[in-house]
Design a protein around this nucleic acid. Structure first.
Lengths: 172, 172
DNA sequence: ATATATGCAAACGGTTTGCATTCAA
DNA sequence: TTGAATGCAAACCGTTTGCATATAT
């Protein structure tokens, strides 16, 4: 889906809800959809204040991001450090994330078989699946190399009563 | 793994790090491991202050939960509402979660095939997997029934530029 | 004209921290 | 005895909110 039609969808979304197309919403929308990276609300706010033109307040950034998320334009992903990051959804096929615990880098992956098994699990449990959040936490290739770990090899998942070294494991 | 040995592991963990076994740590540990539910730090704090005996401050609860998580005794799970909940890990096989967006209920599920596919994905991407967080968000059987939805049937995943109704989709 | 949106600054809620005091080892 | 742990209250940080003002329709 290309920019033009996404923008159309946004305008229609506002109209359908009888919301106004303000300069702020326009700028926030444009900036959010002009990046392919994941960004936090604060990040987006900073980007906007660096740009020349109308000022946008932090409150409006948060409010508009909320709107965009409700409308299904943006998806949110929790970094695990009490901060949400967003990405645009329209024109992007579904994917899950790998988050590097060292550098924060976020990679995307997708496996249709996993999706299918999720549905199967819901079937079993009588659960109505609406959305899901699937994050793999570990080391990206670059950070793994720096640490001398073997990429691909999962770190032994024995976070047991271990000794001193962290391990933490924000496992679910 | 039964209580006795878990406790042993905890004491050993403290000793290994040259940390002291205080009455507070003892009480926090005991309370945390005496429930099979998921609990928040605040929740645990409340439980403790209802009990007779030594008082434990909120700060110590947070600090000790942190310790327990580091030691691999507790795993944390983000509710999606800016709050972490914990569960004890020792003596529990790995599982993932289904979170009811209506009533907050947390169910557990597990599928070895999904675990395997995760590893496969990491292999592909050269990512060193340390832990993961896999949450299915939707309606538990009871809430689905109340709403007249069909349990098992995934809500159409078309959160597109839709009309008025929410849909939100904190998808990843 | 008028309901909606904005900006500001204050409030929030969960979590963390600095520091004087208390306590396990 | 003494370094580590606790309690308290203040600080933090991302996010939300109340209210007076500005603005799209």
């Amino acid at each position: 889906m290309k920019h033009e039609s996404i923008r159309k969808a946004f305008e229609e979304f506002l109209r359908a809800r009888e919301l106004k197309l303000t300069t702020q919403r326009e700028r926030i929308f444009e900036r959010a959809f002009s990046t392919h990276e994941h960004f936090s609300a604060e990040q987006l706010y900073d980007w906007l204040r660096e740009e020349p033109g109308a000022r946008v307040s932090r409150a409006t950034v948060y409010r508009t991001i909320g709107l965009l998320a409700e409308g299904g334009f943006l998806g949110s992903l929790d970094t695990g450090r009490g901060e949400l990051v967003y990405e645009h959804l329209l024109g992007h096929k579904h994917h899950d994330h790998m988050v590097c615990m060292e550098c924060g880098r976020i990679e995307e992956f997708h496996d249709e078989r996993i999706e299918a098994l999720q549905h199967e699990a819901c079937q079993r449990m009588g659960f109505v699946l609406v959305s899901h959040s699937h994050r793999l936490i570990g080391l990206c290739r670059a950070c793994a190399r720096k640490r001398g770990a073997t990429p691909g090899a999962s770190a032994s998942s024995a976070p047991l009563a271990g000794q001193g070294q962290a391990s933490a494991a924000v496992d679910d």
